[in-house]
Design a protein around this nucleic acid. Structure first.
Lengths: 129, 129
DNA sequence: CCCGTAATTGAAAAAATTTTTCGATTGGCG
DNA sequence: CGCCAATCGAAAAATTTTTTCAATTACGGG
């Protein structure tokens, strides 16, 4: 994972600094972290640098930014998946079986050219029921 | 639309103030407005009051808050629909034909109880192609 | 292996956004 | 019509993100 991300950085002509690597490692430890959670995992990296690293990773397609109602969160953009959000405990989890897999989206009729999509499912998780 | 929203406010024991009505009217003029756009449509209402009205409407299910990458936006929560976001011009549009209509979401296998869902489709709109 | 240079970093300041506070005002019931 | 809890607005505070700029550093070329 690190290797792939570093490859994209190199390919883009960006430098592989210890700070960027530290942020990548922090991202790899858990999905959907807030900025503060992320920062706690690499306290040696300055706040501004974390923001800039996340921007860069976003451009390179390494990281996705989410906002599911409680502020920005970040995840490594590996594999196609969608999100379940528990409205009781706030937990965010993922599922990979995409309901749109073989289904054409109805948006073609608008002349819309699809590049990507996301699905969020809101409800109660098993633990909260 | 106004009537229904005011009914919910009354039903919840909240007062129908001119400010709240002004924000509702502003919301009705266009979907997916930012706070500033909204505020430009009811400049007589104080900033804080707009925030509070939006919070209240959110609790009452009158308004939904979106964050599709460029900050918070607000829409009247009427009818089930999803969003197409053009990555060229940033335009947000809606479609009503829900691809999950009759399709069971695969999340039941996680013991997850579904209350709602949302879909966003990213790509290029007809105008930008 | 060292050097030069452009990219990167970090601290401070600025900007942007959202929330809190609290005294003044007001909608709606009696 | 009058009361009073709910609401409002302005200012201040808190939070989040971006900008600035001088110091540091990764890394390709010599």
């Amino acid at each position: 994972m690190l290797a792939a991300a570093i490859g994209k950085m190199r390919g883009g002509g960006y430098k592989t600094t210890p700070q960027r690597v530290a942020v990548l490692r922090a991202l790899a430890e858990e999905q959907h972290q807030s900025l503060e959670e992320l920062r706690a995992r690499c306290p040696e990296v300055g706040l501004v640098t974390v923001y800039r690293a996340l921007d860069l990773f976003g451009e390179l397609g390494i990281v996705r930014r989410l906002d599911l109602g409680d502020g920005a969160r970040y995840e490594l953009a590996e594999g196609h998946h969608h999100h379940m959000i528990c409205e009781s405990c706030g937990d965010i989890s993922e599922f990979e079986e995409c309901p749109l897999d073989q289904k054409p989206l109805p948006v073609g009729s608008f002349g819309f050219e699809v590049h990507a999509h996301s699905i969020e499912v809101y409800g109660r998780c098993a633990g909260c029921r």
